[in-house]
Amino acid sequence: MIDIIQQLINGISLGSIYALIALGYTMVYGILRLINFAHGDIFMVGAFIGFFALGSWGLPFVPGLFVAMLGSAILGMIVERFAYRPLRTAPRISLLITAIGVSFLLENLMVLLVGASPRSFPQSISLEIYEMGGLILTNRQIIILSIAIGLMIVLQLIVMKTKIGKAMRAVSQDREMAQMLGINIDRVIAFTFALGSALAAAGGVLVGLYFNKIEPYMGVMPGLKAFVAAVLGGIGIIPGAMLGGFILGVAEVLVSAFISSTVRDAVAFVILIVILLVRPSGILGKHMREKV
């Protein structure tokens, strides 16, 4: 029993990171109907910016995190401006292929810049371990979870309460009409990319803190898993991405603890196959019937 609770705690910490990345997928999908496969690599770039900010420049943790988020937000807007915006009216498959291209570009650019070998992430927060009745909890888990949840609350406030948030929801429902009401959709789309990329960067820094290792291909697997999380929750639905992230994290940790850690990466994809078969619109998605 205590084992299961322990694994749940670990799973929720991991899941909160998946949730942060999944949010970017789901927001971009909601607004452009694009699966942004480069999103996992933005997460990786965020981790590297965090690496330099915390390590080489010696910033404290929170400012370092902020720099990583800001840097990735700018990168996300650059990618949108130069790779996706020219294809706004092109068929969606062109956008998808471009996203894969951007993904390879970012990975290999990073190999060129910093080399392919893994680096250990600056541990700017020293590890403390708390024991409570057989349960082990680290201060890093608490920090990860509180930062992730804090960011999700801020995101929810932005989307629900602010002017640009309302504009985002409007654009995702009817882009043409939103323009007709005076909304500059280029700006809204750029802002969506910035927001999603900043969250992914936060995820990257937290992964660095949690697993203590970063490298240019680190974004591939978490990127795919976060995509699964977004689909699981219902792609395009913001609370769905959070829910999907947590479920995925818990499932993965439970499987690696009680079945075998060699199949942990398979869990996500089994979930993907099952959800696509059983409920393709996701847990929170409404069942949509094709119009005939």
């Binding site: 002017k163 309302k166 504009a167 409007a170 939103a178 009401l181 005076g182 909304i183």
Partner: peptide, 8 residues
Amino acid sequence: MIATHINY
């Protein structure tokens, strides 16, 4: 309110 936001 989305439409009033022009003058915001």
